[in-house]
């Protein structure tokens, strides 16, 4: 049975920090990884970011306020780390649709991606979106996250997120059908 966030925090408070952290990672590492990976596409980059994310979480767990949700707190750290990484590596990362195709072809060669042509086209379409719409689209379309959870992670209102998602799917539809 999966441990609850409350149990993880209680374990941490009892002084069993290593165990608590291990439980936290086991519970969330995959979800957090895919959240990051969809933003940066490359496994190596996602690996760097997830490590930084959990190091930050380890350092911040002591000060974690229980009013917040452990799940949204972790997602927020991961999102911030991803955006920071993207900004720091703008020149190196895939910036346009050609770069995206190239990166995904390379990932295919490394057996890190198995998507067909249409999936690559979808990733190219996503790459044309502004940063926030890209995040919202990935979280809603692939992770099927609730708007309220997205608002807790990204900030802003549910209404603005709904608008962002609407604009994102509309642009992607236009890109794929043109």
């Amino acid at each position: 049975m999966e441990v609850t966030d409350q149990q993880i925090l209680e374990t941490y408070k009892k002084g069993k920090q290593d165990l608590a952290f291990s439980q936290l990672m086991t519970k969330y590492q995959e979800r957090i990884y895919w959240h990051i990976r969809r933003m940066v596409l490359k496994h190596d980059d996602a690996n760097d970011i997830i490590q930084n994310t959990f190091i930050k979480a380890w350092k911040g767990l002591e000060k974690f306020r229980e009013e917040a949700n452990l799940y949204t707190w972790l997602y927020r750290i991961a999102t911030n780390e991803t955006i920071t990484f993207i900004n720091q590596n703008k020149k190196r990362l895939a910036q346009n649709i050609d770069d995206v195709a190239e990166v995904l072809q390379q990932e295919k060669t490394d057996n890190h991606y198995t998507g067909e042509e249409i999936k690559i086209k979808l990733q190219q379409a996503i790459s044309t979106l502004p940063e926030k719409q890209k995040l919202v689209f990935n979280m809603k379309y692939f992770q099927e996250m609730k708007y309220q959870d997205m608002a807790d992670i990204l900030g802003g209102s549910v209404g603005s997120l709904k608008a962002s998602y609407f604009h994102a799917v509309k642009k992607i539809e236009e890109f794929l059908t043109k």
């Binding site: 496994h43 809603k140 539809e173």
Partner: peptide, 22 residues
């Protein structure tokens, strides 16, 4: 409106995960 477009997109491109990890 977003849901309608999303359904169309999913019919065209599934939201399955094609990224892999070692």
């Amino acid at each position: 409106k977003a849901k309608i477009i999303e359904e169309k997109l999913k019919a065209l491109v599934t939201n399955s995960n094609d990224f892999k990890v070692p």
